[in-house]
């Protein structure tokens, strides 16, 4: 019965022994005990078998999927560049078009003398306000996205 205590303390460190993570001294002490103890030897060999079983099981079938996935990643890179380029063009186009119409609208409005000046400035202010609000929301979104990415990489 006094054999139970050393076994318990050995078995607690059996995983670390198996993984060669103990100090040389501890590793040696464990080795001596295990050599003379069938129970600990049995548990050690069970854990060793379990370790390779887990590895075999979890890597099973990954190899074939792996090469396909790598291909996908490699093809993904130009695709991402293209889509970034596409978005860039789209935004530039939208800004130019928007700018053109805003310019047209304001010059026409300011030149139109049939409407009183304060109505003209009211309409102008209304549209400017809408535009600024839109910019504010856009900026919030962009900042949120950036900090989010930053978090993902650095935590």
């Amino acid at each position: 019965m006094n054999n139970l205590n050393p076994c318990e303390s050995v078995q607690e460190k059996l995983s670390a022994y198996l993984d060669n993570e103990l100090t040389q001294q501890e590793q040696q002490r464990m080795h001596v005990h295990i050599k003379n103890c069938p129970e600990c030897t049995a548990l050690l060999s069970e854990l060793t078998a379990l370790q390779s079983d887990v590895k075999g099981t979890l890597l099973e079938g990954i190899e074939s999927m792996d090469s396909r996935s790598l291909q996908a990643i490699m093809q993904d890179k130009p695709a991402r560049w293209l889509s970034a380029f596409g978005w860039g063009l789209l935004i530039i186009g939208a800004l130019l078009l928007g700018g053109f119409f805003v310019w047209q609208f304001t010059t026409e409005l300011l030149a139109d003398n049939s409407v009183p000046w304060w109505v003209r400035f009211g309409i102008l202010g209304f549209y400017c306000g809408l535009f600024l609000l839109f910019l504010g929301v856009l900026r919030q979104r962009l900042v949120a996205r950036k900090t989010d990415k930053y978090k993902k990489v650095n935590i």
Binding site: L58, L59, I62, M65, D66, S69, I73, R80, V153
Partner: peptide
């Protein structure tokens, strides 16, 4: 990649999303 995919599969429980996470991770290294 293979070992990390095994980890992601075990955390997510879904092969397709595990591959998505791995692709995102790999693209971060690029």
């Amino acid at each position: 990649y293979p070992g990390a995919l095994a980890l992601a599969r075990n955390l997510l429980g879904c092969h397709a999303s595990a591959e998505d996470v791995l692709q995102t991770s790999i693209s971060k290294t690029l």
